[in-house]
Design a protein around this nucleic acid. Structure first.
Lengths: 332, 332
DNA sequence: TGGCAGGTTTGGAACGATCCAGAGCGAGGT
DNA sequence: ACCTCGCTCTGGATCGTTCCAAACCTGCCA
């Protein structure tokens, strides 16, 4: 295997000159640079990562902890996000290293080991919703990291994050339905204790109030299951006879769709309209209109913040909120 | 940051002794070992990965190339597989490094760079279905790797792989339906050019013949889209009036379900039964009975073969075929 | 002609671990 | 008393790169 020394010998220069040819080519005289580059080319040389990592005390690796996926929930967001993240990191000369905790219930497990062994330079933190001890922990240790998700529980928290404006996403959904003539638009959401759930619900309230549409007895809250969506839809339909449903998630929306099937109604623009949230595979496959998170853009922004952080640059704006878009399909 | 030397000084031994305490504790006298371990504990020492990698010429990283996900296909297999793989690698002291190609159309892109920079020790290769130049390429370079998927195009190929017995999976599905009394069981599959598709279809043929059930005009083949599933179901229903459908994928099955909705029929055990393949999120969410690939077990086996390969052990059986199971839900 | 500033190039040291050959030491055999 | 053996432990060399300070040019100016 070719090393710096091999190349140096072949080009008739010193090791350091070869190193400079790669890292600071502007230091070399053009003809030397050319000669070295040819030698590199000829020998098929690629710098050894381990040696470079050791010397520079960097790894160009970004750690991402995979959280256990919830079977049966419609999402599958992670898949799309991962792709985008890996793509963005590649363009930044970084790589994504995955890890899982030994102890799933310890939100900090895994970070420490990677950090102390200098295996990664930084982290991307997801699932900040159930409190974010990781963020505080990493912050305290001055570890570079960027979060996907706001610190809901601690709005003062001062670390870089990127998030989606769920509230605006739901406003889009309500606008869409109201523009189609719907007036009795129901909300099917999560428990009050969910920050994300309440944020999205506020989007519904925003527009319903703005358009002076009724909201009383048109809102249901429960867990993120198909079963809840189904029950909620039955109850709402018996009560205020909504003509449209905006749901906090695709999972819940799937339940609403089932309720419509139960009752022999059609989920469509001209009967009962339904909108979900996440643009999951289930939505794509069942033709459910849904709010789509711009995961590609999120990944790009996360990597941008990460680069700033790694370069010790403090970015002007280190908290970024992106607006989702509505994917209109058969159910509305 | 604590290093070997720091710990050695603290424990009053040489660097090498500390190194041995970690890597070959059986070489040390118990009391020395104890003393060193206490020093390690006290100083919170963790070996530096870069240094270890450099010296041992290993990285304990496994590369996995993320292939572009097909939007709109129901799968989402990768998500589940990744989780399991990361979990299994962790137990083996390895980590998963993700990468994507710059040029998506070049199936080899990305491998070379990681390899030459000694960034990874091995690869896990997926998507071997469209020919497997990666496998041949890696094999030629004697790079340790394990494939998820058989070398369909070159059954002679001699490298370790793990795959799912799709044929057996479909046999399960047909058995299930036939046991429920169905006799006119249709097949909705992929084009003849798909090895995987034909393999699964053979499972259908196996059981239909064995049980002396009719197969003529009960089979359709096309692409992996909802639209195809829908059209195929309409055509089949008009023709031979099947009472059950076995589908090559959940995506196609979703189309079949839609066709039933079109016709006002119910997908259920007592009307028209439908079975999909992959146990995707869409299946879980819509209550579609489906054949589930044992991805957890696949990951375990892949890592086992990988360990053998990395240790230069030649495993007795380096080709493993696992049998999927049937997840019975509402549609059958 | 000598000194000096600038751009180029160089060689030694360092990063933190493991490999390897050999030193120290007590027990057992002759 | 001497030698050998096996168990522990040690110190120097090494992996391949980058940092750092100094050496080397070359042309310019006094």
């Amino acid at each position: 295997m070719a090393t710096l020394a091999t190349v140096a010998a072949a080009a008739g220069v010193s090791r350091q000159t070869v190193s400079n040819a790669l890292n600071s080519p502007e230091l070399l005289r053009p003809d030397t640079l050319e000669r070295v580059q040819r030698a590199i080319e000829r020998l098929g040389y690629t710098p050894n990562r381990a040696a470079r990592n050791l010397r520079t005390r960097t790894s160009h690796l970004v750690g991402l902890r995979l959280e256990p996926a919830v079977e049966g929930s419609a999402s599958g967001l992670m898949d799309r996000f991962l792709h985008s993240l890996v793509e963005s990191t590649r363009e930044a000369g970084l790589h994504v290293l995955l890890f899982t905790p030994e102890d799933v219930n310890n939100p900090l497990d895994g970070y420490d080991a990677l950090l102390r062994s200098a295996a990664v330079d930084a982290f991307v933190v997801t699932d900040t919703y159930r409190g974010n001890p990781q963020a505080a922990w990493l912050e305290a240790r001055q570890v570079p990291f960027v979060a996907f998700g706001r610190p809901w529980e601690d709005p003062q928290a001062c670390f870089p994050w990127v998030d989606v404006d769920g509230r605006a996403g739901v406003r889009l959904a309500v606008d869409h339905l109201a523009d189609k003539g719907h007036e009795r638009i129901a909300w099917v959401g999560w428990q009050k204790s969910s920050y994300i759930g309440e944020d999205r619900r506020n989007g519904w309230l925003d527009r319903m109030h703005e358009r002076e549409l009724p909201t009383t007895r048109l809102s249901a809250r429960g867990e993120d299951t198909i079963e809840f969506g189904r029950r909620a839809a039955h109850a709402l339909l018996e009560g205020e006879h909504p003509t449209a449903f905006v749901c906090v998630s695709d999972t819940v929306a799937m339940g609403v769709l089932q309720a419509l099937v139960d009752l022999g109604r059609r989920a469509a623009a001209d009967d009962v309209a339904v909108v979900g949230f996440d643009d999951s595979l289930a939505a794509q496959v069942t033709g459910l209109t849904s709010v789509r998170q711009p995961l590609e853009e999120i990944a790009v922004q996360i990597v941008r913040l990460l680069e700033d952080r790694l370069a010790m640059r403090t970015s002007d704006e280190q908290n970024i909120i992106l607006t989702p878009e509505l994917r209109v399909r058969d159910t509305s």
